[in-house]
Amino acid sequence: MRLNRREIARAALELVEEHGSEALTMRQLAARVDRQPSSLYNHVSGRQAVIEEMRALIVESIDVTPFAEQPWPRALADWGRSYLASFARYPNSISLLATTTITDHSTLRMYEVVISALVRGGWTAGDAVAGMRAVEAYVLGSALDRVAPESLLSLEALPPGLPALREGLTGANARHASAAAGFELGYEILIAGMEARVTAAL
């Protein structure tokens, strides 16, 4: 395998998804790609640089084209779903990426597209950043929820005396208890609330 930053990032993502973020050391990563640790430094400056390459690899599959084609509420909704699909493939990497300073240029350019669209839609720049971060926080939490076990909320586990919860998990209601259903309902409410807020301010 010819080593480059992309292949290092791919190997790092696989390592973290299989063994957790604590496994991401330059030594273990080098073993993963069958190289000596020193050879990695020909491509990346260290662990932080590897993390940013991981981020770039995930972000490249997030679609921002709706912001050039649709009103911001619809574009933001589509962006969030694309964001969810990308990060849900790498749930073990979320805590690592969410707790390190972002220096990846492709991620920052993505944010620029989102913020610019919100500003054109009537948001102040500061509120636009806050709104984008609200969506991002919701999406990342939902990405973790997607990998929760199906039995996370189980009818069989309920003790007596919880009638409202039992009804919510019984029969036709049970389909609303899934992570996907929870995401869609919450996301609809979030986007509608954001739209109502900026409309009231105009």
Rank of each mutant, 00 (worst) to 15 (best):
V64M: 00
A30W: 13
N4G: 11
N42T: 15
E14G: 14
V129G: 01
L155M: 04
Q36R: 15
L202W: 11
V44W: 07
P160V: 00
V135C: 12
Y41K: 03
A88G: 03
E17T: 01
Y41E: 04
S151M: 04
M1T: 15
L24G: 01
I115G: 10
L97H: 11
D34H: 13
P149H: 08
S38G: 08
Q28T: 08
A157I: 14
L13G: 10
A9N: 10
F87K: 00
Y111N: 08
N42K: 13
Q48F: 14
Y111S: 10
T103A: 14
Y111E: 08
E22W: 06
E14W: 13
H105C: 06
S95D: 15
Y138S: 14
A85R: 10
P66A: 11
S45V: 11
R10I: 12
R175Q: 12
I62D: 05
A174Y: 13
A172V: 14
D145F: 01
E18L: 13
D145R: 09
S142Q: 13
L153E: 05
G161H: 04
A11S: 13
R35T: 05
P91E: 07
S86K: 05
M110I: 02
A31T: 03
V139F: 05
T99A: 14
A30Q: 10
S61C: 04
H176Q: 12
L13R: 05
R74D: 14
G186I: 01
S178F: 00
W72P: 02
L165A: 10
Y90I: 01
W72E: 04
A31L: 11
